[in-house]
């Protein structure tokens, strides 16, 4: 497959270089919000949406910054952009789906500090993707984040029902589970590598 093609970029962000399990981005919500499948699903929807909005906007901002030779402002403008798109999502959700808004609660503003989102913006810049490639990359990354967190939530719901020793409380066992998940995802590396 051509590594520049849109489908390959999507697949690579989705499975091969999964944002959570291979690149270690967005671990805080991955550990924090993966206790229940419903919340995990809603969280992944909101994250994917913010990712899409901020990735398209950061593409435009990068064009402007490069035009004026202001690359050193890139990080600051990206983070301001992400903070405002989270605010935007918050307002839209509050208006059109108050139920979902309440279900997500505190996790919505916390999307701002989700490194997966800044990661998408930074990676697409450093890899020099054009507009369509950026869109495909952000969609793939959002789907990959959702896949990982929902799989993890399913596993943790099963763990709730089993009898475990005391020392595996809190995050210790989640980390081991994530390790095994990550090991299985490495199998997708056979599909091809990305530079």
């Amino acid at each position: 497959m051509n590594p520049e093609s849109l489908s390959f970029i999507f697949l690579s962000a989705f499975l091969i270089n999964n944002f959570v399990l291979a690149l270690f981005l967005g671990l805080c919500p991955f550990v924090g919000v993966s206790a229940k499948r419903d919340t995990a699903f809603n969280m992944s929807l909101a994250t994917a949406f913010v990712m899409f909005v901020s990735s398209t906007c950061s593409y435009a901002i990068n064009l402007v910054l490069t035009n004026f030779d202001l690359e050193f402002l890139r990080l600051i403008s990206y983070i301001a952009l992400i903070a405002s798109s989270v605010q935007l999502v918050e307002m839209v959700l509050k208006k059109f789906s108050p139920v979902l808004f309440r279900a997500l609660g505190i996790f919505l503003p916390l999307i701002t500090t989700n490194c997966a989102i800044l990661g998408v913006a930074l990676f697409q810049t450093s890899r020099g993707y054009d507009f369509l490639q950026s869109v495909s990359f952000s969609l793939g990354a959002g789907a990959g984040f959702g896949l990982a967190i929902i799989l993890m939530a399913g596993l943790r719901e099963k763990l709730e029902l089993s009898n475990l020793p005391n020392i595996t409380q809190a995050a210790a066992l989640s980390m081991m589970l994530a390790g095994i998940l990550s090991l299985t995802f490495m199998g997708f590396a056979g599909l091809g590598t990305v530079a």
């Binding site: 270690f24 980390m175 994530a178 390790g179 990550s182 090991l183 490495m186």
Partner: peptide, 12 residues
């Protein structure tokens, strides 16, 4: 990557 998760899990 899996090593990172597993080592942190073992330390915890």
């Amino acid at each position: 990557p899996p090593g990172g998760f597993i080592v942190l899990g073992v330390w915890l």
